[in-house]
Design a protein around this nucleic acid. Structure first.
Length: 311
RNA sequence: GGGGAGAUACUCAAGCGGCCAACGAGGACAGACUGUAAAUCUGUUGGUUUCACCUUCGCAGGUUCGAAUCCUGCUCUCCCCA
């Protein structure tokens, strides 16, 4: 008999079948689903992010799906806080009338978001967007070298640790310094917050060819389902961060005439394949994941979880 | 039938006597990753016993100390005139 509740994390590359497995598991455990998918959060996007269908959403209570707007400022940190709060409330309700759950299912292909909930990030203050905007334009005008030099002085530790060629990394470290006056590295490795639940990772996998085949097929289905219209309605907001997303960017390029429709579609496929590759790289190094072939019956995985959980 | 242009690694494409296993781009593969993460960035991409050697630039010869680069013939592709 275990003493901590269980968070079952379903991970794997895009289009592998995480959604339906998660639903099967949640049903079996009479519990609910937390989405750890950095793009399914947004209510303005649905076809291109492959959010669960109406039926699927009705079958099991889902959290975080389409709960935000692309106009919101939303980050992994926010997600970690909100998800933890929710998990806590489900496992240890503050109100005695609420049902106590002893397990929850979390699904998602966003490695960093999953890890944030399971392992936690260090605490950083929220930096106002103007700080980053300023750094972005500084980079445009003066080049990355200039920012690198600044970081070298502001935070030599981080400077030697991060990929200095990567603007996102350099700017992030600098924005923390700019806003707080303290180096980014000084926020690292604060006290680790222990989780009040156990985590069990279930990974779905398939050989490369299979994944790619599924991706190609799914992209065609998205187009048939009206992705082009969905993207067209968002075209005016194409600069929003949430819309820096595979399936939308390529169509924006089609709308402004830089590529043809056919090119856009094959670019979506290509970029989705690359995305799946990066997901694989991220998850592969997580040794806690128990991998299953994508065709494995949910019952079999269920049995595995029960076995594992009894120990 | 006559005239012209060209054949370079997975693709496109530079190179026009030595600094070339061969610029660059694409693609593919691999990797990184603490609030932009479906983002962003990095590396590799002829072979091997990998700080060295071997085999490559349509094919076969030749010139040269030395050729992807020059010469000859052949094969194929494209364009123009008939």
């Amino acid at each position: 008999m275990r003493n901590k509740p269980l968070l079952i994390c379903v991970v794997g590359p895009t289009a592998i079948g995480k959604t339906s497995l998660a639903i099967a598991l949640a049903k079996a455990f009479s519990t609910e689903i937390i989405s750890a998918d950095s793009r399914q959060f947004y209510k303005e996007m649905s076809i291109g992010t492959a959010v669960p269908s109406k039926e699927e959403l009705q079958a099991v209570p889902h959290h975080f799906i389409q709960s935000k707007s692309i106009f919101d400022e939303y980050s992994v940190g926010d997600f970690e806080r909100e998800a933890l709060e929710l998990i806590n409330e489900k496992f240890f309700p503050s109100n005695n009338d609420n049902k106590v759950l002893d397990s929850l299912v979390m699904v998602g292909g966003s490695g960093l978001y999953v890890d944030a909930v399971v392992r936690g990030l260090d605490e950083f203050p929220t930096v106002p967007p103007e700080v980053r905007n300023k750094l972005n334009s500084e980079m445009e005008n003066l080049g990355i070298e200039h920012l690198q030099e600044r970081l070298k002085i502001a935070d030599p530790i981080q400077y030697s640790k991060i990929d200095i060629q990567n603007p996102h990394r350099v700017i992030r470290a600098l924005e923390i310094f700019e806003f707080t006056g303290k180096p980014f590295s000084s926020f690292l490795n604060q006290k680790s917050t222990p989780r009040a639940f156990e985590t069990l990772f279930i990974g779905l996998s398939a050989d490369r060819e299979t994944i790619y085949g599924r991706i190609n097929k799914r992209v065609d289905q998205m187009i048939d389902a009206g992705l082009i219209e969905e993207a067209r309605n968002l075209y005016n907001h194409r600069d929003r961060n949430a819309l820096q997303t595979v399936g939308y960017r390529e169509l924006f390029n089609y709308f402004d005439g830089s590529i043809s429709k056919e090119e856009a579609i094959s670019e979506i496929k290509k970029n989705t394949r690359r995305f799946a590759k990066r997901q694989g790289t991220w998850f592969r190094k997580n040794e806690a994941i128990h991998w299953f072939d994508y065709r494995t019956k949910p019952e079999e995985i269920l049995e595995f979880i029960h076995e594992k959980n009894a120990k």
